[in-house]
Design a protein around this nucleic acid. Sequence first.
RNA 1: GCCCCGUUCGUCUAGUGGCCCAGGACGCCCGCCUCUCACGUGGGUAACAGGGGUUCGAGUCCCCUACGGGGCGCCA
Length: 511
Amino acid sequence: MSTTTESGKPVVRFAPSPTGYLHIGGGRTALFNWLYAKGRGGRFLLRIEDTDRERNNPAAVAAILDGLTWLELDWEGEPVSQFAQAPRHREVAEALLASGNAYKCYLTAAELDEMRKAAEAEKRPLTIRSPWRDRDPAEAPAGVPHTIRLKAPREGETVVDDRCQGRVTFANKDLDDLIILRSDGNPTYNLAVVVDDHDMGITHVVRGVDHLTNAARQTQIYNAMGWRVPVWAHVPLIHGADGAKLSKRHGAQGVEEYRSMGYLPVALRNYLVRLGWSHGDDEIMSTEQLIQWFDIDDINKSASRFDFKKLDDLNAHYIRQSDDAELVRRVRDMLPHLDFVALAVITPDPKAPPRSDIALAREVASVLPDVQTGADLAQRFEAKGWDRFAAAIPSLKERAKTLADLVSGALYLVAERPLKLDEKAAKLIDAEAKSLIGGLLPQLEAASAWTAADLEAAVRTHAETTGAKLGKVAQPLRAALTGRTVSPPVFDVMAVLGRDEAIARLKDHMS
RNA sequence: GCCCCGUUCGUCUAGUGGCCCAGGACGCCCGCCUCUCACGUGGGUAACAGGGGUUCGAGUCCCCUACGGGGCGCCA
């Protein structure tokens, strides 16, 4: 399974621990790795860090793969299960023991506890110094289980030459002999990572800075095995808007939440890549450009804060740029992930990110009270025909920040007659409006063509002959046709609705 | 507590000793466009954490302080 890299092309990996979802920060790490590999003809591999049996959960693994797939980050081959490599990890631990680079340690939990307490009492940093490092194993107490510890150097320093963090040195006296094999015979994380990265032929390790000290420990294992240390790149973390570690209360941790909020993968990628990395003043970059331009040397060292406003702007840009068929496909893919009933009861924190999925849920609750989930709503659109939705998209996508906005803007299509008008819309339909529309109706019924351009011409003429401003007639039309004061251009709305439906909606409000 | 790392407009960032009385983007504010909302467009607001050095010259180099973050498991 061992691969060499005579080609000089990088082999990188993304190695998430299966926690149940793909963390947004992990998504960016995966993106960095993916871009680096793609840009250099390298390989992007996946490994699941499931050494801990409790994390060995197929559903959690599936969620991560699903997240990566949605983000459109493809990996090579089957994901490696770290847990499955345990025998090989043990083998390496034995080899280290045999070469004198590791030793059996009979320290008990109670003894360790004592050392910890003593260190605390003396206000001195705790560094475990196992007496078994130099003690004759023959003196080992019978029946006491042992761990295997690395015989780490105590003098000098361990250097992590990092492409992102620079040259970081750790004094070996501060690093204790880490356990590589637990007393139950299972490998620990640091051993497993080193062995797997070596066996997978990983040349560059790109991961979060929270692993920086692990890099020092892992370097000691590489050295003890005489293996080549990979190139390190420890990237800064992403924080919430308040600067604290990104957590649930910041809105969204898992990439699947961004999917259900209506973000496009291409937009999320563009947003994420600019967190900690830049290419001059470039903001909107195609995937091809990113692949060409991305380099780990250009990643910053400081953490960044997540800003939904900017993500929204990027997402709006990519929605405008997407073709209509793709947007329909995206909406149909997203809808099943929405539960309007659950969303509608969320009280948005005014300081929290704007949630257009929540806004949509409220809209649905008021306009289509019997619709409970995205799947229900999808059926409504299905019944009208998705082509009607597609026809509405050109004018809708100009003003949508998210796919949820697109759906919300298209709600007028599936609304039931007679339309329930919102408060502002109802106020627009006064006596004057009724008379204007009443005068217009016969012309509409007689109109030879029902296109936006023809309708606009007809309405403009009607406005001129009656001496009314265009807004005086357009606004009430909008209100009667959509139930709202805000919508795409009203002539587009009429065209999409079709003659019969449009005229019927107008008549509904004439009495 | 100890060990590492960081700190440029509200936010993401450009900037690698003179091109910077600091540029771009998002946001925000004021116009224009306009059937509403957007888009687009014109303009505006706003930052080198603080203090010492080095240098003819510092956002850029060095030191200290403050603040922030990460790590200190037989978790990953």
